[in-house]
Design a protein around this nucleic acid. Sequence first.
DNA 1: CTCGATTGTAAGCAGCTGCTTACAACGCTA
DNA 2: TAGCGTTGTAAGCAGCTGCTTACAATCGAG
Lengths: 187, 187
Amino acid sequence: MSEQPGRRRDAAATRQALLDAAAKLFAERGFDRTTVRDIAKLAGANQSLLFRYFGSKEALFEAVIARSGREQLAATPPERLFSTSLRSMLAPEGNRNRALETYLRSSGSDGVAAAIRHEVGREYAGVLASLTDAPDAELRADLALAWLMGIALVREISGLEPLAGADPDDICRLVLAATKTLLERSE
Amino acid sequence: MSEQPGRRRDAAATRQALLDAAAKLFAERGFDRTTVRDIAKLAGANQSLLFRYFGSKEALFEAVIARSGREQLAATPPERLFSTSLRSMLAPEGNRNRALETYLRSSGSDGVAAAIRHEVGREYAGVLASLTDAPDAELRADLALAWLMGIALVREISGLEPLAGADPDDICRLVLAATKTLLERSE
DNA sequence: CTCGATTGTAAGCAGCTGCTTACAACGCTA
DNA sequence: TAGCGTTGTAAGCAGCTGCTTACAATCGAG
């Protein structure tokens, strides 16, 4: 047990708690509708520490997105990225990948937040583009990514039925069949 | 000339100006990031009139969405709704259909705004579902709508290249080819 | 013209926002 | 144990938010 639970002053732990709380709230509410007070409260920390450790709300968002957005990207082989992301997005709330959700719910935000969204999006699309050798591979990848985003949007945010409550298997079947023409390598 | 341009007191005109200004700003910034002061300023009206005529910011949003969201829906035959919406979304900024954009940029908002989004989305999906006789027609329609939303999101909000700058014809070709398996009637 | 309702204006309220400051409690090192 | 940098706390600031109120200008009906 290298960790003392009773330790009352631990900058690293506080920092981590703030990061975790921010990740959760940004994913649930987006950038604009998440307040620094809520983050600090959920982390059990004083809100002024948030500014001491991260500088600003936007810098904290950057730290959150940079971490969560690239986790799945790094852990998944390209040829499975699309279906894995789709499945992860459709998974029950607990073990869902939050990168897309965070991305989505902060769609309205400008500034640094927008720049980071942009960057992570490009990385995703770059990997997807490697799946086809069509001359417009990157456009195809963007369209595939757009579908992922749209499904996440309609399911999680709009809650449109029957999509919101549909069986992940049914969704995967329909989507993967349709994207075959988009992302398959010509033989 | 039934209209006097110099008329200084005209409730109907003021109301309309507020509605137009709100439609523009909600589409550009979404619900949360649009302030009643900005709307009133753009409309050239006093902000307290906004509350006199519409009651609240959410009620004004409702009025805007109900109008713009259903215009295209009513004006387009079902079998062309998907491609028309797609093309309208890809059109240059001036004559673009703003319904999807408004919908998108307000994705983070709760309350009445969310309820209206939901309702308009259902109407769109209902029409799209009539295009196929598959037993899961509604799910297919939701997925098609989700793709529209996703493309709008990635193009207009994320600005991800090459999708954001791609030729509408190229996009249509790819998307319509892929959705053939989704929305076509079995023969 | 008179007067009451309609339309427009200016000011302000309470609450929230991101962020800062002044200060106290703590714990490591010497 | 003395001292000092680190960590945590409480209070507050200026600016913005949706919305309300009190009041002035204007109009049309009688």
